[in-house]
Design a binder for these strands. Structure first.
Lengths: 229, 229
DNA sequence: TCCCTAAACTGACATTTGTCATAGTATTCC
DNA sequence: GGAATACTATGACAAATGTCAGTTTAGGGA
């Protein structure tokens, strides 16, 4: 893949597209490319981040540990997403852990480059602001879903989310394969409950599963379930 | 209260403090002061907002209707907070309703003033960005709490939140009085469940209640409950 | 003041969800 | 290839929570 930020297509998907040629050059010169293996962390809850991570390949789960010892996955980030922005902007330790769900390739961009551009390029700042506004809206939706919907509804929604955001492979299975435990941590339920609901969905013909791979069979009915029928 | 934004103390608490004298003058000239009675809406979910609302007095609940017909309260906003920013920035319809919990006094600032300043004053943009980063972090915390804690724990947390954010009156009761239904909508549970837990807390001496007014009696035990003992 | 309505409350019950125990099934690593 | 380990699955049960139905209480007009 192209290693010069100026030519990197990835940035078309994130706030970096608002950077000028010179700014991108600076970012390009200061960035480092990192490879993270499945299961390894990009950063951990409480870490002080010295920069942001731009995802080139693979998927990362952003999660937070609850006092009951369970992780709650707040977001799944893939190609083009920038992680750690919030922490860098507010100059606080990060409140989330980022762990690779796949093997990943990311660019680490030191915070100086980001802060520098934030000060000089209002377009960039606005772009970051717009992204954050969007994330906040999504977070509100998650709050409402998680508090007002049943586990079954949230499971159905999770599968539809996975399809819409990560797509399907050639055999019609969800492209992103998560462990049952990760699924339960996205949905916010016990692993056993998640497994039981998967079994139920299989029996009812809503999904198919072969090993870890899950495929959506009856999207319409899943949608109806989410809406509460 | 002072009607010129330049002299308004309220703005010390929000992003408007990053505005210049001239910008504040423009805001002041274009703003309108509105009085909203208890129970009335500032705006409703799905509305297209033509500006933001700066709270001078009173409290507003920001809520979203779920498909099961219940409202989930996502945030309680009081003096100094600015509502509708996100919608104005992303130029989308608002995803939340804002309804007065108290009688309120707010300033409506047309979006032109805001957008104008966003374009010209990078400090202001950064300030808004920082606020939004903070809100996003809080939203993450809410997600984790609501999904990983029991209703009882969340109730305890809600009372502590009300004390810390809105304080107590001279008699030691929580300054912000919410109906049982509103409390249940903050916590994300059935009204009956909320009432039952309030009764239980009263019996156990964690809180006292006289009519709608609730007072915290044993903060330590409430905290322990939240942390899971 | 009294009524009337909305809110607060309580009980009984059904349902959902979590927990523990245990067994089967993949996967990895030597 | 085979043991060790992690993940998936299922049953049985307990606990938490929601729902429905009905009663009591409080507050705001006429």
């Amino acid at each position: 893949m192209e290693s010069r930020c100026e030519n990197c297509i990835i940035r078309q998907f994130n706030s970096l597209r608002a950077m000028s040629k010179e700014e991108l050059k600076q970012v390009s010169d200061s960035k480092t490319v990192k490879t993270i293996k499945k299961g390894e962390p990009l950063f951990q809850e409480g870490d002080k981040l010295n920069g942001v991570y731009c995802v080139r390949n693979g998927v990362s789960k952003l999660s937070k540990l609850s006092s009951n010892g369970k992780d709650q996955i707040v977001k799944l980030a893939s190609k083009g997403e920038v992680l750690g922005q919030r922490s860098v902007i507010s100059e606080e330790c990060t409140n989330l852990s980022a762990i690779a769900v796949d093997d990943m390739e990311v660019c680490f961009i030191p915070k100086e480059s980001i802060n520098n551009t934030l000060q000089k390029n209002p377009n960039f700042t606005m772009e970051v602001l717009r992204h954050m506004a969007h994330d906040l809206k999504e977070a509100d939706d998650v709050i409402v879903n998680i508090s007002q919907k049943t586990v079954k509804q949230r499971m159905a929604e999770a599968f539809l989310y996975l399809k819409n955001n990560f797509g399907e492979d050639e055999d019609g299975y969800l492209a992103l394969t998560l462990s049952r435990e990760d699924i339960s941590n996205v949905v916010g339920t016990a692993t056993e409950s998640a497994i039981r609901i998967i079994s139920e969905f299989k029996k009812k013909g809503l999904i198919v599963a072969s090993g870890k791979k899950i495929g959506i069979k009856d999207e319409r009915k899943l949608l109806e379930l989410v809406e509460g029928f």
